[in-house]
Simulated scan of single mutants.
Amino acid sequence: PSTKYFLDGFYSFPINMPIYMLLLFAISLLWLGLIWFYVELKSSNYLLSYIFLLFYTEFLCVFFVWKGNFDNINFAIIALPMLILFRFIVKRIRNILYIIIAPILIFAYAKYCYEYISQMTLYENTFATHRNYKWDHERAGGIITTYSFERFDDALRLINKYSKNSNELYMISKYDNMLQFFSKKYSGLKYFELKSFIVTDNEYNEVLDLINSKADILYVDTDIFNVYYKELKERRFFDVYNNQWLPNDVMRRIIQLKILLNLFDDVRDKYELIEHGKLIDVYKRKKE
Results as ranks from 00 to 15, higher is better:
residue 46 Y to S: 13
residue 39 V to F: 09
residue 109 Y to C: 09
residue 54 L to V: 10
residue 125 N to P: 02
residue 45 N to S: 14
residue 128 A to V: 01
residue 31 W to A: 14
residue 62 V to L: 13
residue 139 R to H: 11
residue 135 W to L: 04
residue 144 I to K: 01
residue 121 T to A: 06
residue 44 S to K: 13
residue 48 L to C: 08
residue 99 I to W: 04
residue 152 F to V: 14
residue 65 V to K: 02
residue 100 I to V: 09
residue 85 L to F: 08
residue 150 E to I: 06
residue 51 I to G: 01
residue 91 K to E: 09
residue 129 T to P: 00
residue 158 L to K: 04
residue 45 N to W: 06
residue 42 K to R: 15
residue 121 T to S: 11
residue 124 E to H: 12
residue 157 R to C: 06
residue 109 Y to A: 10
residue 33 G to A: 05
residue 156 L to D: 05
residue 83 L to S: 15
residue 98 Y to Q: 11
residue 78 I to F: 12
residue 104 I to Y: 07
residue 118 S to L: 09
residue 161 K to A: 13
residue 147 Y to I: 14
residue 85 L to Q: 03
residue 158 L to H: 03
residue 55 F to V: 13
residue 165 N to M: 01
residue 72 N to M: 11
residue 84 I to G: 04
residue 59 F to Q: 03
residue 43 S to Y: 05
residue 66 W to E: 12
residue 34 L to W: 02
residue 29 L to R: 10
residue 44 S to I: 07
residue 30 L to M: 10
residue 134 K to H: 09
residue 71 D to H: 06
residue 47 L to M: 02
residue 36 W to E: 09
residue 119 Q to M: 12
residue 63 F to N: 06
residue 140 A to G: 09
residue 36 W to T: 12
residue 46 Y to M: 08
residue 51 I to V: 15
residue 84 I to P: 01
residue 30 L to H: 04
residue 153 D to W: 00
residue 121 T to R: 10
residue 122 L to H: 07
residue 25 F to A: 13
residue 35 I to L: 15
residue 104 I to T: 12
residue 81 P to I: 04
residue 60 L to M: 15
residue 49 S to G: 12
residue 147 Y to H: 09
residue 59 F to E: 01
residue 149 F to M: 07
residue 151 R to E: 04
residue 133 Y to Q: 05
residue 158 L to Q: 03
residue 80 L to V: 10
residue 30 L to N: 07
residue 160 N to E: 15
residue 150 E to M: 08
residue 135 W to E: 02
residue 44 S to D: 14
residue 27 I to W: 06
residue 111 K to M: 11
residue 42 K to Y: 14
residue 115 E to S: 13
residue 35 I to N: 08
residue 151 R to Y: 00
residue 99 I to E: 03
residue 39 V to R: 15
residue 39 V to N: 12
residue 135 W to D: 14
residue 62 V to P: 01
residue 56 Y to G: 06
residue 155 A to W: 02
residue 74 N to P: 04
residue 147 Y to W: 09
residue 97 L to T: 03
residue 127 F to Y: 15
residue 79 A to Y: 10
residue 45 N to V: 02
residue 104 I to N: 04
residue 37 F to Q: 12
residue 116 Y to E: 08
residue 163 S to T: 07
residue 36 W to K: 14
residue 80 L to P: 00
residue 41 L to V: 04
residue 134 K to Y: 11
residue 85 L to D: 00
residue 136 D to C: 09
residue 90 V to H: 15
residue 131 R to T: 13
residue 91 K to A: 05
residue 104 I to H: 03
residue 39 V to T: 14
residue 152 F to N: 05
residue 110 A to D: 10
residue 60 L to K: 07
residue 32 L to K: 10
residue 141 G to W: 02
residue 41 L to R: 06
residue 131 R to E: 12
residue 66 W to T: 15
residue 36 W to N: 09
residue 108 A to K: 09
residue 80 L to Q: 02
residue 129 T to Q: 14
residue 89 I to K: 03
residue 85 L to Y: 05
residue 138 E to I: 15
residue 101 I to T: 15
residue 97 L to C: 05
residue 40 E to A: 11
residue 78 I to M: 11
residue 58 E to F: 08
residue 125 N to M: 10
residue 148 S to F: 03
residue 64 F to G: 00
residue 110 A to L: 12
residue 136 D to F: 12
residue 26 A to L: 15
residue 104 I to F: 11
